[in-house]
Design a protein around this nucleic acid. Structure first.
Length: 479
DNA sequence: AAAAACTCCAACCGCACTTGG
DNA sequence: ACCAAGTGCGGTTGGAGTTTT
C-alpha cells in the first residue's frame, strides 16, 4: 500500500511489498513509481497505458498505471472525507443508478469511482448493521419517480421488445447497460432530451437466463388493476395504479426536480390506462430482463406460514448483476429483519401489525428520539450508532418526515408475487392513500400538481410506517 | 496492555465493451 | 465476420490503522 511505504526506505519497502512477476510489479506504488508515471503522463498524455511500461521502464501493467493515475495522481483530485453535500449526491445518485460508480463519479468532480464505491460499501455495512434503511424516504420517492418516468419515456419511444413487458423495460431503464449510450448517460448534456432516443438494443440483448422469475404466465385478466412492475426503490413497489394515475397521469414532459440532478428525459404524456391496457401475458423469461435478475434474486421467501409470515430475503449472488440497487435493498431488508428478530422473537406472530410501529420508533430514533428498547438494541451494533448518527445527519430530517401511512404488513403482500402474481393483480387496490411525505413534493415539477388528492389517511395509519425501511414496506395492502 | 473487532482504502482481478486490423 | 489489444467498470481482497473489549 502506498501509504505504508515510508519515505526513508522506499526501496526496501518496495521490495518487501511489491511483488514482481513476469516483469510486472504488483502491490503498493512507491513515490518513485508515481513520479515516473506522472512524468510519463505529462509527456505523453493519458491513455496508451500499456505503453507506459515499455517507454518508461515502469514495472507496472497498463491497468495498474491507469488506476494509479485515475485514483491518485491526476490533478484536481479531491482528497479527504466526503462533504455532506457530496454524500447526499451519492445517495441520490445511487438510488437512481445503482452501482454505477463511474457515472456517479462523473457527477462529483474530483472524486473517483473507487472512492465512491468504498464510501457506499462502508455506508451500506453501517446501515445494515444498524438496521437502518439504505435510502432516506425522499430519495426513494425521487428515485421511484425517476424510474417510472424513465420507464414511460422508454415505453413511449419504442414498444418493449417482448410484448408489453413493461416490467422488463422499467427495470432495464433503471440500469443502463451501455455506458456509452448517449441516452443513458450525461442526461444533462442534451438540451433537448427528445433528441436522444433510447437505444433498446441493450434491453433486447439481455440474457434471459439472468432474468428473474416473476412468473406471470397466467396473468391475464387482471381486471384492469394493472400492477406496475415493482421498482426496486418504490415505496409503493411501483405497483400502484393509484400512484400512476395520481402521480404521472397528465404529465407533459419535464424533469424531475427536487434533486440536484434533474433528469431530463421527457415525461410521457398519457394516462395510466395506457399502461394497464397494454399489459398482456408475458413469458416469465421476459420479465425483469433489464436488471439481471433483480427481483428474482431478491424474491421474498415465505416461510409458508400465511398467517403470521416472516420473511427472509433470498441471498444474492454477487454476480447477478443487479447493479447494486437490489443488493442495497436486500441488505436493508436483512438488516431490518434481523433487527426485528433480535428485538423479539416471540413477537413474530405480531410482527406484521407491530412492525410498522417499530419502524416509526426507529425513525424517531434517527431523528434523535431514542426509545429505550431501541437504543438498547442499537448499543449492540458496535459503534455504528455514532457512524449512523453522522451518516444520517443528512437524512434524519428527511427520515423524520418520512413517517408515512401505508398499507399494513407489506411483506405479506410481497409474498404473493412469486407464487401467484395473478391473484395479486386481481386483488390489487384501485386506490391507495397518498402518504403525506409524498404529497409534500407535489408542487414540484413531478407532474403531481394535477393529482387528485388521496383520501386523507386515517390518523391511526400513521402507525403503519415502514416495516422494512424504505424498500419494501410501502407496498400497498393487497388483501 | 493485549487481543479482537472493525474501518478504511488502495490495489487487483475478471468481465465486457470498443476499436482497429 | 473474426480476432486481439486496449480500455473501462464493478466486485473483491488484503493490509494498515483505529476502536473496542
Amino acid at each position: 500500500m502506498a501509504r505504508t511505504v515510508s519515505n526513508n526506505d522506499d526501496e526496501t519497502a518496495a521490495k518487501e511489498e511489491g511483488e514482481v512477476k513476469d516483469g510486472v510489479r504488483k502491490g503498493p506504488w512507491t513515490p518513485e513509481e508515481d513520479a515516473i508515471l506522472m512524468e510519463y503522463v505529462k509527456k505523453h498524455g493519458e491513455g496508451n497505458w500499456n505503453s507506459v511500461q515499455k517507454n518508461s521502464g515502469l514495472l507496472r501493467c497498463g491497468k495498474s498505471c491507469r488506476l494509479r493515475w485515475a485514483n491518485h495522481l491526476r490533478p484536481n483530485l479531491k482528497k479527504g472525507a466526503f462533504s455532506p453535500e457530496e454524500e447526499q449526491v451519492i445517495i441520490d445518485l445511487h438510488s437512481k443508478l445503482g452501482n454505477k460508480w463511474a457515472r456517479m463519479a462523473a457527477q462529483l468532480p474530483g472524486r473517483t469511482d473507487n472512492e465512491i464505491k468504498n464510501f457506499w460499501n462502508t455506508r451500506m455495512k453501517r446501515r445494515q448493521r444498524a438496521g437502518l434503511p439504505i435510502y432516506p424516504p425522499e430519495v426513494h420517492a425521487e428515485a421511484n419517480a425517476y424510474h417510472l418516468q424513465h420507464h414511460r419515456y422508454l415505453e413511449q419511444q419504442q414498444p418493449p421488445p417482448y410484448s408489453s413487458s413493461s416490467f422488463s423495460l422499467l427495470l432495464s431503464s433503471c440500469y443502463p447497460k451501455k455506458l456509452n449510450d448517449p441516452n443513458q448517460i450525461h442526461h444533462h448534456s442534451s438540451a433537448n432530451p427528445m433528441q436522444n432516443q433510447p437505444d433498446h438494443s441493450a434491453d433486447r440483448s439481455i440474457n434471459p437466463s439472468q432474468q428473474f422469475k416473476f412468473s406471470n404466465e397466467n396473468s391475464t385478466g387482471n381486471n384492469g388493476n394493472f400492477a406496475f412492475p415493482m421498482s426496486p426503490l418504490s415505496p409503493y413497489g411501483s405497483s400502484s395504479s393509484t400512484l400512476l394515475n395520481h402521480s404521472f397521469g397528465g404529465d407533459h414532459g419535464g424533469f424531475i426536480a427536487g434533486s440536484p440532478y434533474e433528469q431530463p428525459f421527457p415525461l410521457v404524456q398519457g394516462s395510466t390506462t395506457d399502461i394497464s391496457s397494454n399489459q398482456t401475458p408475458t413469458p416469465a423469461s421476459s420479465y425483469a430482463s433489464g436488471v439481471d435478475g433483480l427481483m428474482g434474486a431478491s424474491s421474498m421467501v415465505n416461510n409458508n406460514n400465511n398467517n403470521n409470515d416472516y420473511y427472509e430475503v433470498a441471498p444474492l449472488s454477487p454476480h447477478q448483476g443487479n447493479s447494486g440497487l437490489l443488493d442495497a435493498l436486500v441488505m436493508e431488508a436483512q438488516g431490518l429483519y434481523h433487527n426485528e428478530k433480535s428485538r423479539s422473537e416471540e413477537d413474530l406472530n405480531l410482527a406484521g401489525k407491530l412492525s410498522c410501529k417499530r419502524k416509526n420508533m426507529e425513525y424517531a430514533e434517527e431523528g434523535g428520539t431514542v426509545p429505550a428498547g431501541v437504543s438498547a438494541m442499537k448499543k449492540n451494533s458496535g459503534n455504528s450508532s455514532n457512524e449512523s448518527q453522522r451518516d444520517d445527519d443528512i437524512s434524519s430530517s428527511q427520515l423524520s418526515k418520512g413517517k408515512k401511512q401505508i398499507g399494513e404488513d407489506p411483506l405479506e403482500e410481497m409474498n404473493g408475487m412469486d407464487d401467484d402474481l395473478v391473484s395479486l393483480l386481481n386483488q390489487f387496490p384501485l386506490e391507495m392513500p397518498m402518504p403525506e411525505w409524498y404529497r409534500r413534493g407535489e408542487n414540484q415539477s413531478l407532474g403531481l400538481e394535477n393529482q387528485p388528492k388521496a383520501s386523507s389517511p386515517d390518523p391511526a395509519d400513521h402507525e403503519h410506517a415502514w416495516t422494512l425501511g424504505t424498500c419494501w414496506n410501502n407496498m400497498p395492502r393487497i388483501c
